[in-house]
């Protein structure tokens, strides 16, 4: 049997992911269905979350196990309501931004690819999150209300499973060249589904900003 990666490869230590996906912070989960302030203000649609993740692959044994750190960005904008109680939207806007940081343990079962050249790698992630959130009231100010301030951080955890397609089989020659010239061993296209429980790890006065959603993107192992 001829493996797709039977050539001499450069050493591999890291994986870099660039991923995109829809996101809607579950702020309303705090109220147990009694109120939906996030939905009322920003609507029920999801908006783009962009993330980048760098993994360090520690061991290889029936797959690879690594630790990874990721950083993301999300922004949503909505119209303020008039304070007169008319429930009418004004031209004034508020923005809501998230900067999620995460540490993950990542396991990739790439043995079938390494041994048999099957270009599909299932993987799983488990880790901790800290999401920095900030609200802007339109005057470039962080609003305050009832003794609170519209800016803070929330701890949480996440678990995700995914499937990545190793793109090297599409053009092995270019893949080999990419490795020899740039040191990139493999290029993956991946799809991931995950649950992000970012509600303070049980603390009661934290803004809930997690979600259960999917992401997709590109990963480079080098």
């Amino acid at each position: 049997m001829t493996s797709i990666n039977s050539h001499q490869q450069s050493p591999q230590h890291f994986a870099l992911e660039l991923r995109f996906g829809p996101y809607r912070p579950d702020v309303d989960s705090e109220f147990g269905g009694k109120r939906t302030p996030y939905k009322d203000f920003f609507g029920s649609g999801r908006h783009l979350m962009t993330q980048v993740e760098l993994d360090y692959q520690i061991i290889r044994h029936v797959g690879s196990l690594g630790i990874g750190a990721s950083l993301g960005y999300f922004k949503q904008t909505g119209n303020n309501l008039y304070a007169s109680g008319s429930a009418q939207q004004s031209s004034d806007t508020s923005s809501f931004r998230l900067l999620p940081f995460a540490l993950s343990a990542v396991y990739r079962f790439d043995l079938p690819y390494e041994r048999a050249g099957i270009p599909v790698v299932p993987y799983g992630k488990l880790g901790l999150d800290y999401v920095f959130w900030t609200i802007n009231n339109g005057n470039d100010e962080v609003p305050t209300s009832a003794g609170g301030r519209g800016q803070g951080g929330t701890l949480g955890w996440h678990a995700a499973v995914g499937l990545s397609l190793v793109l090297d089989f599409l053009d092995p020659t270019s893949a080999h060249q990419f490795d020899s010239e740039m040191g990139v061993n493999h290029t993956h296209l991946f799809f991931e589904y995950g649950h992000f429980d970012v509600s303070g790890l049980g603390q009661s006065n934290r803004l809930h900003v997690g979600d259960t959603t999917w992401t997709a993107g590109l990963m480079f192992e080098f």
């Binding site: 702020v27 705090e30 109220f31 009694k34 109120r35 302030p37 996030y38 009322d40 203000f41 920003f42 909505g78 303020n80 309501l81 004034d92 508020s94 809501f96 609200i135 009231n137 339109g138 609003p143 305050t144 209300s145 009832a146 003794g147 609170g148 301030r149 519209g150 803070g152 929330t154 009661s204 006065n205 934290r206 803004l207």
Partner: peptide, 16 residues
């Protein structure tokens, strides 16, 4: 703004 709407209501938003 969003934060004021989150904080004021029944029940109140608790994130300070």
């Amino acid at each position: 703004d969003f934060y004021r709407q989150y904080r004021h209501g029944d029940p109140e938003g608790t994130a300070t």
